[in-house]
Lab assay of single mutants.
Amino acid sequence: MKATFQVPSITCNHCVDKIEKFVGEIEGVSFIDVSVEKKSVVVEFDAPATQDLIKEALLDAGQEVV
């Protein structure tokens, strides 16, 4: 499964690193693409990962998800 999250609070590479760390810890996540320019995060994943778990990880990383 693939999901795109709009994350307007992404401003720098530190944000990218933190997002990759938090989302990458979720079992089932196979790909993460964070774009500072587009302020988006694209995640490819399989169970047990879910969109809700990914959104929670983004929030835990200090990001706003819309």
Rank of each mutant, 00 (worst) to 15 (best):
I10R: 00
C12Q: 11
K21F: 11
H14N: 15
P8W: 05
V43R: 00
A47M: 08
C15G: 09
E27M: 10
E20V: 15
G24P: 02
H14V: 15
V29T: 03
A61N: 03
P48I: 03
V23A: 03
I54F: 03
I26Y: 02
D52H: 10
S30T: 13
D60F: 12
S30V: 13
V66L: 09
D60P: 03
D17Y: 10
V65Y: 06
Q51N: 07
H14W: 10
I32A: 02
L59M: 11
F45N: 00
F31R: 14
Q63N: 06
G24E: 04
T4F: 15
Q6M: 12
K55P: 02
G62T: 11
Q63I: 13
P8I: 11
S9P: 04
A49V: 03
M1Y: 07
A47V: 08
F5T: 06
V36W: 07
K55N: 05
E27L: 11
V29P: 00
V36P: 05
I10K: 00
S35I: 07
F31W: 13
K18I: 12
S35V: 06
L58Q: 01
E44S: 10
V65K: 05
C12D: 13
I10N: 02
D60W: 10
D17A: 14
I10C: 14
K38N: 13
K21V: 05
V41E: 01
T11Q: 11
F22V: 12
A57L: 04
F5P: 04
L59P: 00
K39V: 04
T11H: 15
V36G: 03
D17L: 11
I26R: 00
C12N: 13
G24S: 12
C12K: 10
V29W: 00
Q51M: 14
L59H: 09
F45G: 01
A3L: 13
T11F: 15
K2Q: 06
D17C: 09
C15Y: 10
I10S: 03
S40W: 11
D60T: 11
F31G: 07
E25M: 14
K18D: 07
V41A: 00
G28D: 02
K2P: 00
L58D: 02
H14S: 15
A3P: 09
K2G: 04
E37M: 06
K39M: 09
K55S: 05
V29K: 00
D17E: 14
K55D: 02
E25V: 11
M1K: 12
D52T: 09
E37I: 10
C15F: 09
S40L: 15
P48D: 03
G28T: 03
V16P: 04
H14C: 13
F31A: 10
V66E: 09
V29M: 01
G62M: 13
L53E: 07
F5G: 06
A47W: 14
L58Y: 01
A47N: 06
M1D: 07
A3N: 06
A47Q: 06
Q6R: 10
A49M: 01
S30D: 04
E64T: 15
V23W: 02
H14D: 15
S35L: 06
V7P: 05
K55T: 07
K39D: 04
V34Y: 03
E37A: 13
V36S: 03
C12W: 07
F45L: 02
D46C: 10
H14P: 05
K21S: 07
E20G: 07
S9Y: 10
V29Y: 00
E37D: 09
A3T: 07
K2Y: 06
F22R: 11
T50H: 04
E20Q: 14
V34I: 10
G28L: 03
A57D: 00
M1T: 10
T50P: 03
A49D: 02
S30R: 13
P48F: 03
V7S: 02
V36Y: 06
E20S: 11
S9K: 04
E44I: 14
E56D: 10
E37F: 06
S35M: 05
S30A: 10
I32M: 04
D17S: 12
K39R: 11
K21G: 05
F5Y: 07
A57T: 02
F5E: 07
V66W: 04
A49I: 03
I19E: 03
L59F: 09
V41K: 00
M1E: 08
G28P: 00
P48E: 02
V66M: 08
D46L: 07
V42Q: 06
I19M: 03
T4S: 09
F5R: 00
A3E: 10
S40H: 11
L53T: 07
F45R: 01
F45C: 03
K2R: 12
T4D: 07
P8V: 12
A3R: 01
E56P: 00
D60V: 10
A57E: 01
L53N: 05
C12Y: 10
V65S: 05
